[in-house]
Amino acid sequence: MNEQQPSTSQLNGVDVAAILEARESLEAAPEAANFRFAARSRWLGGVHTRMEIDQFFGLGEIQKRSRTFTVDSDHPEVFAAADVAPTPVELVLAGLAGCLTAGIASVAENREIELRSVEATVEGDMNLHGILGIDPEVRNGFSAIRVTYDIDAEASTEDIEALVAQSQKRSAVFDVITNPTNVFVTVNS
């Protein structure tokens, strides 16, 4: 289940010491903290698209990933699509779960709480009258998102709740979803 084997000093396989060290050095060198994440996408026909992710910019230079990761998106059959991959909105929900869970593991490591299992269900409510243009009052995106965690850990219920709350406080995807962001889409001529 856990690909990264916990070392003897780590409870959950998160290298908190390295993270804390990075925090210190990035505080001293604020320029190096300016990262730029990136993905490329290519249309494959129908409503099927493939995204490739292989590098980002950070610490003052381009950082190559270990390999090229691909993520496909498509749409389900009820949308008259081939259903060969998740819909983009499901990828957003998945991103939220991935981000919050990484945060929970990191905070738990830092607070010396051993996690046995961390499972989440993420749901997003969407009224299709928005994207189908039926009702201009209805937004395209989710009207609400609910994340439900089941966590088995060596800690009290209050301490587990505090992990989940702290993880939201420090989550990038949670911030992306809960706060407005300016988005600039341009077309190369």
């Binding site: 209050e158 505090a162 709350a165 939201q168 406080k169 949670f174 979803i177 809960t178 706060n179 407005p180």
Partner: peptide, 28 residues
């Protein structure tokens, strides 16, 4: 409060979490 757009003010969707954090810290 996150931003203003024309005549509207926009707020973060994190209200539930900041209240939960405050409750948990108070209990502690």
């Amino acid at each position: 409060l996150t931003s203003f757009r024309d005549n509207t003010a926009l707020f973060s969707g994190n209200l539930h979490n900041v209240c939960r954090l405050a409750d948990l810290k108070m209990q502690r």
